[in-house]
Amino acid sequence: MEKNLEEIFQSRIDREEKIEPKDWMPDDYRKTLIRQISQHAHSEIVGMLPEGNWITRAPTLKRKVGLMAKVQDEAGHGLYLYSAAETLGVDRDTLFEQLHSGKAKYSSIFNYPTVTWADIGAIGWLVDGAAIMNQVPLCRCSYGPYARAMVRVCKEESFHQRQGFEILLSLSQGSEEQKRMLQSAVDRWWWPSVMMFGPSDDDSPNSAKSMKWKIKRFSNDDLRQKFVDVCYEQAKVLNVTLPDPDIKWNEERGHYDFGLIDWEEFWQVIKGNGPCNKERLAARNKAWDEGAWVREAAMAHAAKRKERSNKKKVA
């Protein structure tokens, strides 16, 4: 019987049908999605921290309102995604607990520091650029609520990347010092961004299953290649060099070749030993703990209002 259900499920996927919350699905499909969607949600939430760092020090009012709007969007993206995860039967508090205890992962890119204003531009260009490349195919993911959430996210993401690129473009047309600041931000963010696509295909055991279930549409390495190809051309507009001496056009492949990724660094950051892992988790926990009284007050207020209106009805 079980096997039969799984065959029906797979044939629905093969026909490009979307799976909805109340449809039958294999346990492993549900678990994979809960893990992926919640990690994605956590990434949006933790992603606010490195950028929030610069809101009060943005160089102009225009940059400040742009950055605030972006950070506000990230909070919204976290919300869409947590809600999509909840349709699979996990509750919000459990997900938060997993994040706050360090049990859940989030994108390792957010464990790097934003040391200058140029980092905010580099995040928009490279980090959001990589995120968009990952996220656009997710709009066609086989799980309906996730796919629909991603359509909203992608629509909003385009402004993020453009505001980042414009920040860098201004710096590229500025003083020598500003140009140096730009180049050094690109130097810092390039490799972590290339790593955002995850382990190499040979080293990514869950990829095949996710592809078969059409949660994933392209392999990590294919998306990474696309990212490198696009960025190499975009870097010319900024007059910056990507910090990879091996990057070179390969006529035969029709793609840019690029250097070896330092996977040791990648796994270290994932394991919690990146430059800011502890700081990020501490900031999330602090916000959660210090917000406890607000959550309690809101519930107490709601209860009081309900009680009052019940009394009125009786009277």
């Binding site: 225009k62 309102v65 414009e166």
Partner: peptide
């Protein structure tokens, strides 16, 4: 500034 077209 919430729209992509705001950025030149």
């Amino acid at each position: 500034y919430r729209h992509p077209t705001f950025y030149d």
